[in-house]
Simulated scan of single mutants.
Amino acid sequence: MNTQIGDFDAMAFYRALDAERESKHLNWKQLAAQTGVSASTLTRMAQGRRPDADSLAKLSAWAGLNPADYVDRIGVIQSAESLTKVLAYFRADANLTKEAAVALEEMVQAAYNRLKKKN
């Protein structure tokens, strides 16, 4: 299936949700209880299925994720802009020292430059 403008990347959303769950040291059953989203919905999401609108809203609110960030806007976001945004998150993260944020920035920037598409 080809990606088109406006497609929701359910697996990317699920991976971000999983990262947030892990950062809070929760299992999926605990996440289901905290959000009111059924465990079966979470299982279906792990298999690549999309959540219903209510579940998406609950999970987004719980994790602080913007669903629009997971809608494909092919060519809309320039690579430099996306890298800049990611690096800004590291600088703003209260869990990181300034030195740690700089180290992460350097690693991500090196990996990004190595892996990005060549024009």
Rank of each mutant, 00 (worst) to 15 (best):
R50S: 09
T97W: 08
S82N: 09
A103Q: 14
K29S: 09
V102A: 10
D52C: 08
A32F: 01
G6K: 01
L83W: 03
Q34P: 03
A88T: 10
F90R: 01
A19V: 03
V86T: 14
R50V: 13
Y14F: 12
R15V: 02
Q47L: 07
K24T: 03
N66F: 01
R50N: 11
D69H: 10
N27P: 03
A39C: 08
A16W: 02
Y89S: 09
Y112S: 10
D52M: 04
A68S: 08
Q30I: 05
Q30D: 08
P51K: 04
S23K: 12
K118C: 02
A10M: 00
L59N: 04
S82T: 10
T97A: 08
E20R: 15
L17A: 05
V102D: 11
V86Y: 01
Q109T: 09
G48Y: 00
K58P: 00
L59A: 01
G75S: 05
L42F: 03
A32R: 03
L104N: 11
R15I: 01
A111T: 14
A16V: 03
A10C: 12
P67D: 08
H25Y: 12
A103H: 08
T35R: 04
A80E: 11
E106S: 07
M11N: 06
A19C: 02
V86I: 13
L65C: 05
D54N: 12
D72R: 11
E99F: 09
T43N: 15
V108M: 08
V76S: 14
T84F: 07
M107R: 15
Q47P: 00
A88C: 11
S40D: 14
A33Y: 06
V86F: 04
V71C: 07
D69Y: 03
S60M: 02
T41G: 05
L17S: 07
N27Q: 08
A110V: 05
Y70P: 04
S79C: 06
A80N: 15
D72T: 04
K29P: 00
A100E: 09
K29E: 11
K85M: 11
Q4A: 13
L17M: 09
A110R: 11
L42V: 06
D9H: 07
I5C: 02
Q4N: 07
E105Q: 13
R44T: 06
A32V: 04
D54E: 13
